[in-house]
Design a binder for these strands. Structure first.
Lengths: 205, 205
DNA sequence: GACTATCTTGAACGACGTTCACAAAATTCG
DNA sequence: CGAATTTTGTGAACGTCGTTCAAGATAGTC
């Protein structure tokens, strides 16, 4: 027989599943407490036994998305041979393209990672912050191969910059408010940017 | 005596003023129809004689923000002497730093330029789209000086990429969800990125 | 000044997240 | 096992939101 705690944990998972599906299909605005309750077969108020509020639910969905993104980037950088100076730029390009592909295929879920704001003065939990940090590691490793002479702090900062720059191209490129960019063009744009930055990094001062 | 149309136009301006103030101070979530009605001294329903819905209001505020941003970038690039190959990179840096400064000083208003989503399948009006395009011109001009040999289309694409990259660094840097970046560091990060890209652009293939 | 068209009003509507008194169920203990 | 007690589930109700609309106030026209 299932204990109460186990059933609750199962229901919590169902709830996050349903929330993830709702956001993926209809965006953050499509996330409705009443729909979720009906979907997982519980009363409206019971949701608040599983999560504190909708913000926490969005945060948990974001956590999943971040984990899948991390896996996708790992897969992209793991394809080639291990550390090699010649292919460092290629690996950075592969990671950037994987980031773009993930964003495109998980558009709504990817967006809330950056656009979701907590209600009022609520603080983002520590685990959510530290999760985001791990993303930079996919860039830091190839970058360390590319720039073995730079200080660790400098490479860390450069990772952040590189990630942000690629993120910006992806974010603006996938924004339908501006004129839509075709897939191929966006990919080329990203590869061009990464190679450009790599060339700048290794060019003589 | 003031005609009806003139009074309406005046009220519409008051409404946008009030909406702009509300968003600047308390974010998009702080924009409430009832508060606006009280602020400009009209009935709740009267708002819908001035704008179709809240989406249009947000769009109009965004239009103002875009105009102010355009002016800020113009001021930044106009300080130096006119077209000169030596200072092209400096001008691009100046524009990027001005963009960052504007975003920082108008954080909430700047955000809705990118984060606001229209309700359902509503289409963004043409004027809102074309407004955004004019932003790239601040980058296209110095870039044309820097890369006189490239085709126009290529430079246009490069402008878009450069803008997006800087935008990404600013967006991630000002995101308080991640660890806050100090002003000075962010400025340095941006200058570094722009110079890096310029170096990559002018470096031998 | 009377007639018509237009605008203004605020109560009402439906939808939302959240709460809460109460009922049901599970757990504890004699 | 059954009674007492704690925990959990329930859905109606609350407050707030954007939006609508019948009715009253106002402006425009001859």
């Amino acid at each position: 027989m299932t204990t109460t705690a186990a059933r609750r944990e199962r229901q919590r998972t169902q709830l996050i599943d349903a929330a993830e599906k709702a956001i993926a299909e209809r965006g953050l605005a499509g996330l409705k407490a009443r729909e979720l309750a009906q979907e997982i077969g519980c009363a409206l108020g019971a949701i608040y036994n599983l999560v504190a509020d909708m913000d926490e639910l969005v945060l948990r969905v974001g956590s999943r998305t971040l984990a899948r993104l991390d896996a996708a980037l790992s897969a992209a950088e793991g394809e080639d041979a291990p550390a090699c100076a010649d292919t460092a730029a290629d690996r950075l390009v592969a990671v950037a393209l994987a980031y773009c592909a993930f964003a495109r295929e998980n558009l709504q879920l990817w967006r809330i990672l950056f656009e979701h704001r907590m209600a009022e003065g609520a603080v983002v939990p520590d685990w959510a912050v530290s999760e985001q940090m791990t993303l930079f590691r996919h860039i830091l490793e190839p970058l360390s191969v590319l720039l073995p002479d730079r200080a660790e702090a400098e490479r860390m900062l450069m990772s952040r910059t590189l990630f942000s720059a690629v993120h910006g191209v992806v974010a603006i490129g996938l924004e339908q408010k501006l004129i839509a960019v075709p897939h191929r063009d966006l990919d080329r744009q990203i590869e061009g940017l990464v190679r450009l930055i790599c060339r700048g990094l290794t060019a003589p001062a």
